[in-house]
Amino acid sequence: MIPVGFAYERPSSVDGALALLAEHGEEASVMAGGHSLLPVMKLRLAAPELIIDISKLSELSYVKVDGDEVAIGSGTKHRTVEASEVLAAEAPLLAAVARTVGDPQVRHRGTIGGSLAHADPASDLPAAVLALGGTVVLRSPRGTRSVPITEFYTGVFSSVKEPDELIVEIRVPRTGGAGWAYEKFTRRANDWAVVGVAVVDGRVGLVNMGQTPLRATATEEALAAGASIADAAALADQGTEPPEDLAGTREYRRHLARVLTKRALTTAAGG
C-alpha cells in the first residue's frame, strides 16, 4: 500500500522548516525518520498535503550534557540514543528504553522527537522521558518554549504542540547512578508494549495504561512515604483506565502494571 500523493519540501535549516510550517500549518506534516508517520500514511489513515522532510537536518541530531541535564536533539535516531555513551553515563534509562523500540531497522531510522511528537500512549520513549522528569523544547517563528513532559500530552495522538511548532530538543535530568529499570511486556519482541513500566530514581512512568503516558503517582507517593516495593507496586494502576484490545483487557493491563512495577522497582533497587 502506498500513501496518497503529497507535496514535498526539504528545508535546509530548522528556520526553513519553521517557515514552511508557519505557512502551511495543519495541512503539513513534519517527517523525520518517518517511522510513525509513513506507516499511517501507507494505510491511508493520514494524508498530509505537504511533507516537510527534516531527516537530513544534522543540527537536530546530538546528545550532550548541558548543566544538570542531558540535551538530545529531536532528530537523534533511536540507534544513536541507544548507543550514546553520554546517556549510558548520565541517563542510562533512556538509552535502554531506546533499545527496546521497534526493531533494529526501525531504530536506524526513527527519531526521539518523532516518537514523542506522535503522542502514542503505547510508545516506550514518552513514558521514559516522563519517568525521567524531562522537558520538551518547542520552536516556532513565534519563539521557543520548554514544556515539562508532564504537561505535554493531552490525549491519544495529541499534545500541546501547536501546528506551527517543531520539537527541537528533549532535555532530561542527569540521573547518573540512580537506580533504574524498564520492564516492557510484549507478546512478540517486535510488538508494541502491552504495558511498559519505566522506573528511575523513585519515579514510575507507565506505557499504554491510558490516553497518554502516565506517572504511577500513588506508587511514587507510597515509596516516598517509606512503603515496601510490594505495597507501592500494588498501587501502580491506581487511577488508570487502560485501553482494551486483543493483547489485553483493562483488568489484565492493570494487573500487568502492578506486576511490572514491582519487578522494575526491584531491579532499580538492585534486587
Binding site: R99, W180, E183, K184, T267, A268, A269, G270, G271
Partner: peptide, 9 residues
C-alpha cells in the same frame, strides 16, 4: 521473555 533491563542503585 519480553524486555527487562535495568541496573541497581
Amino acid at each position: 521473555p519480553g524486555f527487562s533491563t535495568g541496573s541497581g542503585a
